[in-house]
């Protein structure tokens, strides 16, 4: 039994072509999405990441600005040279990020023995110098006597002066006041 030949009208042929066309188009788009090349984007991302890490690493001393610590602005042109740091905020004095003194509001030292209030600072600085000298004796870089002072803009001069005095007693000879780049914004 032979099947009778199918007589395709012009409209039926056109409809089949259209379906085939759309099927092929959909398949083509699907292939395109599946094969999206991510290599170029990966390259951009990697370069961006390397650049950002370098920018971050170039900041020798990163400090977090907040109400407790806001160094004054200055037109001083010199770039920062990392060294031993004394950080004077509104609430504390730190030597290389270690707490040395607690401060009351107004810059007064919170100490049980006011006659010997700066003793913990002297001890912390002497310990730091001793550690650097020990490292130097064992092949490290020598002690250069440099000291960075990172202080809040409202710190009274009395406190700054006393801190420098005790740093001098601990054999620090060169002081560098750390400031924000920019013009003066002071009373």
């Amino acid at each position: 039994m032979t099947t009778p030949p199918v007589v395709e009208t012009a409209e039926a042929v056109n409809a089949d072509d259209e379906i085939l066309f759309y099927r092929r188009k959909r398949k083509h788009v699907k292939d395109l999405v599946a094969g999206l090349n991510l290599t170029a984007m990966m390259d951009i991302m990697t370069i961006l990441l390397v650049y950002l890490i370098k920018v971050y690493a170039d900041a020798p001393e990163s400090i977090t600005l907040n109400d407790d610590l806001r160094p004054p602005s200055s037109t001083a042109p010199e770039n920062l040279v990392p060294s031993v740091s004394i950080l004077i905020s509104k609430s504390a004095v730190l030597v290389d990020s270690k707490l040395a003194l607690r401060l009351k509001p107004g810059g007064e030292i919170d100490s049980e023995d006011p006659s010997n209030a700066y003793a913990p600072l002297s001890k912390a600085l002497a310990g730091r110098v001793e550690a650097i000298k020990y490292i130097a004796d064992n092949g490290g870089s020598p002690f250069d006597g440099n000291l960075m002072i990172i202080a809040d803009q409202d710190t009274p001069y009395d406190l700054i002066s006393n801190v420098l005095y005790h740093a001098g007693k601990a054999q620090f000879t060169t002081y560098r006041l750390v400031v924000q780049k920019g013009g003066a914004s002071t009373p």
């Binding site: 920018v55 001083a76 010199e78 770039n79 920062l80 002081y175 750390v178 924000q180």
Partner: peptide, 17 residues
């Protein structure tokens, strides 16, 4: 990096006591 502030230093000589 947006919050990194640019720092500078102002050298001072040791206080004369």
């Amino acid at each position: 990096t947006a919050y990194i502030i640019e720092l500078r230093q102002a050298p001072v000589l040791a206080p004369s006591y």
